[in-house]
Design a protein around this nucleic acid. Structure first.
Length: 574
DNA sequence: GCCGTTTTCGGCCCGACTGTTTTCAGTCG
């Protein structure tokens, strides 16, 4: 049993305990254990097996959780979880994802109406019965119905890092066969509906057996000679594995990478040249001779095009651009020289400045900026003016030579409701880098939100707009505002737009990146890491930037240290 | 349930809003 899985079982139980109104501190301990276990570099199952070691030596794990771990590893569940599931059906957990409802309301709904599924909940709202419960009314019914619609829309889709992880696990499972993800994962879409994996190599057919017998496979949907489909993990991501002969590998990659729209245009182009393109190859119509198939680039080349990066294949002008030789030279992960949005224990991060720096250095960066939260985020223990100034001083006085890379003092400063910054100017002036972010009042009218952001940009110390649309993938939509106007103003003032690389956000997305670029904006790509392991999420931000047609020169944290400092760091009077 | 001890139990993060009230519980971040 993997740590992720163990953590999930405990987290679910904590949710159910909250609905059951159990002791909140006990629940917190469970939740704390979840984060510890998720982030722990060794498998809990292995530590439990080793008589020389004790899981209780891990901070956050005491006797109680140790017992729980033992039970989980032994039989896949534990006593309190079983008790909770007796009381509430597991579908009750789903309802926690609906905005406006918390554990108390869910418990009440269950008691009064036996509501335990999203469908039940929807019916109760439509029948206007929710409002008959104490402290609930028509507005809440509306809000819940809206949230249900959003929830349904995102159901069956998965974050990119999850799909990526599964793809990697299957690649390892099927080694030494060559496994390549195609589909939306290869194109770098921010969420993935199902995972397409192409497999080639000698004896590829046995790969289908290995795959369908894999312990993480939950349900086999179909299995033939060349293809198997299965739901993987309890999350139920559908994975399609196809085996292919070498000679059509390139054609299959091209075909299954998509997008559908890109492929339609490409096949039409082929037809005009007397060729037909399918998943087996590019074939000349006149004599049915296959002219390309093994190599993807060769297919594009035979169609008179340079190879087009998968991230661009959305039929958003990339085929014309390719034909006319004006494809961008896309940014690459290796171009990134720094990560300039991350948190430490000073606010809501999980590691120290030194730990973050050490891990960033291991990734080859030349510099980072530590940007903890400001005081408006009380729950995140945000910094007030005094702590902020002290932090800047501490960074200035630090002996950075030990760290092996340059650390900038920064802040992710809240943009308040009225567009003013959460901390006073004289405090912000002490910092190397100020990111301004919206974390509250996200349901403002578009015009109001536009004014708020324009006003924020009047602050002379603001250098970057953090996660500019506030979306949380599969959970919360972007807040509306006049993006073009804000982007134009940012460009004018030399304020960069952030591409937040967290797989939960990936904000900005491709369309807005292209709009912002057309307005003259420059960008930063950062992970918003709250833990050293999040630093590797940079690759998803880079994918998003590539989907937005960005080149290295568009992104400020590709610059070498000295130039980056000149471009973005330091005091400016406006 | 964990931690850190003043070794046997008390402390553990909180401010603000929202929708419902008519003084505040529940949700959110």
């Amino acid at each position: 049993m993997e740590n992720q899985e163990i953590a999930r079982l405990i987290a679910e139980t904590a949710d159910l305990m909250e609905i059951a109104a159990e002791d909140s501190f006990r629940i917190r301990s469970y939740r704390n254990a979840v984060t510890v276990i998720e982030g722990y570099p060794e498998r809990m199952a292995d530590i439990l097996k080793d008589p020389a070691r004790k899981v209780t030596d891990i901070p956050g794990i005491g006797k109680g959780i140790a017992h729980v771990l033992g039970e989980i590893v032994e039989r896949g569940s534990f006593e309190r979880r079983d008790q909770m599931l007796e009381k509430y059906p597991p579908t009750a957990l789903e309802m926690l994802k609906i905005q406006g409802l918390g554990p108390k309301s869910i418990a009440m709904l269950f008691e009064h109406f036996r509501v335990s599924t999203i469908d039940d909940l929807e019916r109760i709202c439509q029948e206007q019965k929710l409002r008959t419960l104490p402290r609930m009314g028509a507005k809440l019914e509306e809000k819940v119905l809206r949230s249900i619609a959003q929830y349904r829309q995102s159901a069956g889709r998965f974050h990119i890092d999850f799909a990526d992880r599964i793809a990697l696990e299957i690649t390892e499972l099927l080694a030494p066969l060559k496994v390549t993800p195609a589909g939306s994962l290869r194109r770098g879409r921010e969420t993935v509906g199902d995972l397409d994996l192409l497999v080639t190599g000698p004896d590829a057919t046995s790969a289908l057996d290995t795959f369908t017998k894999w312990t993480r496979v939950h349900e086999v949907l179909a299995k033939g000679v060349n293809k198997a489909s299965a739901k993987v993990g309890v999350e139920g991501l559908q994975v399609d594995v196809r085996t292919l002969p070498d000679e059509s590998y390139g054609a299959a990659m091209q075909y299954f990478t998509g997008s559908k729209d890109h492929n339609v245009v490409l096949r039409n182009r082929a037809l005009k040249q007397g060729l037909t393109l399918n998943e087996y190859g590019l074939v000349r119509l006149s004599d049915e001779v296959k002219v390309a198939g093994a190599d993807e680039a060769e297919i594009y080349s035979m169609l008179g095009l340079p190879w087009i990066a998968p991230e661009l294949r959305e039929n958003h002008g990339e085929i014309d651009a390719a034909a006319e030789g004006r494809l961008p030279v896309l940014l690459e992960l290796g171009d990134m020289r720094g990560d300039i949005h991350m948190h430490t224990r000073e606010s809501d991060g999980r590691a120290s400045l030194e730990e973050m720096a050490e891990n960033a250095r291991a990734l080859g960066y030349e510099y980072i900026a530590i940007t903890d939260h400001s005081k408006a985020l009380a729950m995140a223990n945000g910094l007030d003016e005094e702590r902020c100034v002290n932090f800047a001083r501490k960074v200035r006085e630090m002996d950075q030579s030990q760290l092996g890379l340059r650390v900038f003092s920064g802040l992710e400063c809240d943009i308040r409701k009225d567009g003013t910054m959460d901390l006073a100017d004289d405090a912000l002036a002490e910092l190397d880098l100020v990111i301004g972010s919206v974390h509250s009042y996200m349901n403002m009218e578009s015009a109001e939100m536009t004014d708020r952001l324009l006003r924020a940009m009047e602050c002379p110390y603001l250098k970057v707009i953090g996660h500019p649309t506030g979306r949380v993938l599969l959970h919360r939509d972007a807040f509306p505002y006049d993006f073009e106007r804000v982007a134009a103003e940012a460009a004018k003032r030399g304020i960069a737009m952030e591409i937040n690389a967290s797989p939960e956000r990936l904000d900005l997305h491709a369309t807005l990146i292209r709009i912002a670029k057309s307005k003259g904006c420059r960008f930063t790509i950062s992970t918003d890491a709250h833990h050293p392991k999040h630093l590797s999420n940079m690759r998803y931000g880079v994918k998003m930037a590539r989907r937005g047609w960005l080149e290295s020169k568009d992104v400020l944290n590709t610059l070498p240290l000295k130039e980056f400092e000149q471009a973005l760091v330091g005091r400016r009077t406006g």
